[in-house]
């Protein structure tokens, strides 16, 4: 079902929502855009993609999972007010679908249950976006598509329908197109590239700063740390974001790290995003938002690297033998 709304009435609609719901929307704050609670529709920051993805709403950094007090342990179940996550792009919406497949704990599920996802069509994707290559699905409670003076609102669930009950229905449904893309990932079948030498160039540039994983909307990996409060009496188990680009990620007691080299960590990141997750759950984990490419301080472009390998598959025998020839000539 699709509904229709005049563009100028959007603010009114949000105002009616604010009375009943908590609204989380893109906000610009000290040079960086992120999803945050708003009190009026004017606070919404209109941008292509927020710098920090919406995962922080479901898994905020350092959220408490357990509390130990007086020899008793309480589980924090993540109960939140009814919330609307407003202004998600198609990739962000799909990212939430991806994370849904790997998070099973009470805390996450409770938060997820009480959140309505409101998406917005992407009108001006930039040169980093490659979402059309990543098998995105239609996943939303509500999805706004601008058409002339109006928004066409697609309804994806009952939760979403409730929000726009009073709006007039569109008689003839239209098909919502995919956002435009300038970048493309040519293949998802990258298993054969695992031992390709061309990864090296990317790995050499990697600082292991973990920006890619911190800003990735689907990177859900975490670490549970126990923190003792200053009053000593309460201890909290908290969840922190954790990155597979760090050596500590796979470190076990005794000091062995199972992904010791930067190469193996970098490859694990890329292959998990594109290949492994697809094998596990049937769809790629990467949703093509391009945040990892945007934030990388050394501008590593793994999408390009895969495309290169795709164009010229197999590892370079010609170069290899040429090099050897040179050495023997010496």
């Amino acid at each position: 079902m699709q509904k229709i709304l005049l563009k100028e009435n959007l603010n009114e609609l949000i105002k009616t929502w604010i009375k009943k719901y908590e609204i989380i929307a893109p906000v610009k704050e000290s040079k960086i855009s992120r999803f945050k609670k708003i009190n009026s529709p004017n606070e919404i920051y209109d941008c292509l993609l927020t710098d920090i993805p919406a995962k922080t709403h479901f898994m905020p950094e350092g959220e408490t999972l357990l509390e130990h007090k007086d020899k008793k342990t309480i589980e924090i179940e993540g109960k939140i007010k009814k919330t609307i996550l407003f202004g998600l792009r198609k990739c962000d919406l799909n990212a939430i679908q991806v994370v849904d497949k790997v998070m099973f704990d009470k805390n996450y599920i409770n938060k997820r249950k009480n959140t309505t996802l409101v998406g917005f069509f992407c009108e001006n994707p930039d040169k980093y976006c490659f979402c059309n290559s990543m098998e995105l699905q239609d996943f939303y409670d509500l999805y706004f598509y601008p058409q002339g003076k109006n928004y066409i609102i697609s309804i994806g669930s009952k939760k979403g329908e409730e929000l726009v009950k009073h709006l007039p229905e569109l008689k003839k449904e239209i098909k919502i197109p995919n956002p435009k893309n300038f970048k493309k990932l040519n293949t998802l079948d990258i298993e054969k590239y695992y031992r390709d030498e061309r990864w090296k160039a990317d790995v050499r540039k990697c600082l292991s700063c973990t920006a890619c994983t911190a800003y990735c909307p689907t990177c859900n990996c975490f670490d549970i740390k126990e923190l003792i409060n200053s009053d000593i009496k309460t201890i909290q188990s908290k969840r922190f974001h954790s990155s597979c680009m760090s050596k500590n990620f796979s470190l076990v007691a005794g000091g062995k790290s199972f992904r010791d080299s930067r190469t193996s960590r970098f490859k694990h990141f890329v292959f998990h995003k594109v290949l492994y997750f697809k094998k596990q759950k049937g769809r790629p984990m990467c949703i093509g938002c391009g945040r990892c490419l945007r934030v990388c301080p050394t501008k590593i472009d793994w999408v390009n690297t895969i495309n290169k390998m795709n164009r010229k598959p197999l590892f370079n025998f010609s170069r290899f033998s040429f090099k050897k020839l040179k050495e023997t000539n010496k």
């Binding site: 040079k31 960086i32 710098d51 600082l207 973990t210 911190a214 990155s243 500590n248």
Partner: peptide
């Protein structure tokens, strides 16, 4: 045993 960036990035600093 991680660089400063790790905490900085997960805090969401520019």
């Amino acid at each position: 045993n991680d660089p400063v960036c790790v905490e900085c990035r997960s805090k969401g600093n520019p």
